[in-house]
Amino acid sequence: MTAYVIRRLLLTIPVLFAIVTLVFAIRPLVPGDPVEIMLFGQSANPEVIANIRAQLGLDKSIPEQYLLYVSNVLRGDLGTSITTRQPVIEEITNRYPATLQLAIGAFLVSGIVGLGSGILAAVYKDSPIDTVAMIVATTGISMPAFWFGLLAIYLFSVNLGWFSVIPDGSLKSLVLPALTLGLIASSIVARLVRSAMLEVLGQEYVQTARAKGLTERRVVMHHALRNAAIPVVTIVGLQFGGLLTGAFIIEAVFAWHGIGELAVQAFAKRDFPMIQGITLVVATTYVLVNLVVDVIYAALDPRITYS
């Protein structure tokens, strides 16, 4: 097991390195002169332009820029944002907790809603309950996030006045964005729980448990659910990685000041150091979450061998 974890960790290193390389490549590939974007139509004297180019390292050759970039990244320096003139790493660190909060909130929502409707659908397979539960579960992921969020704001915040539109940092202001994002994610969870439960419910030991005269509730909760948990945990874990980053539009709509909102602004303004920084941090997070999920999965499932 330890060997497996170590091997898995070591495998992560080249992946991370490749990510840094790809992220670096974004800048030379993005059209438009970054200095022009920075000055935004203002005519600056050549001296100022040269200074800015030097500041951004644009006066060097691409290989030199690459080495510089890698060494900066290794030292935790992701450059300076073109638009806010703040260190990118600082901006991201400022916003990371908000995104984490939202991800955890949405994770809980998707877990509860997804598990609930998935179990219901599996237990009452092919009944109207199954149909309704699955259609409801599919609804979340089928709504354009932007429309979903906007309708939620108008209904619950403006018309009903239950929540404030501007997040005030309280737990209450997390409810609406987390619910919206969570409902979107719960669709996939519900599907998986249903499939996993159906598979487990069809197996012999569950049939045996039924035959022994256990109540259906006990069969479902004790026997089936526990065995269905393995694939579900994996998926839910992966979902968490996705949630951490999949919240771009939800964050923008709810004025939730996380990384997603930062990314939306950065892409809209072609703030390339910021785009690179966010891409790098998010991809790294995703890789690490996947790593953790893999390890948990390995620990949970005795069928996996670690050769």
């Binding site: 080249p14 990510i19 974004i26 059209p31 990685g241 996705g242 980053t245 998010v282 991809a283 995703y286």
Partner: peptide
Amino acid sequence: MRFTDIMLAFPGFLLTLAIVAVLG
């Protein structure tokens, strides 16, 4: 597969966004 894994490390929409940033 390493290449695919690296692409998979850019979660969904982010990869799409990055490509649009490059293509316009």
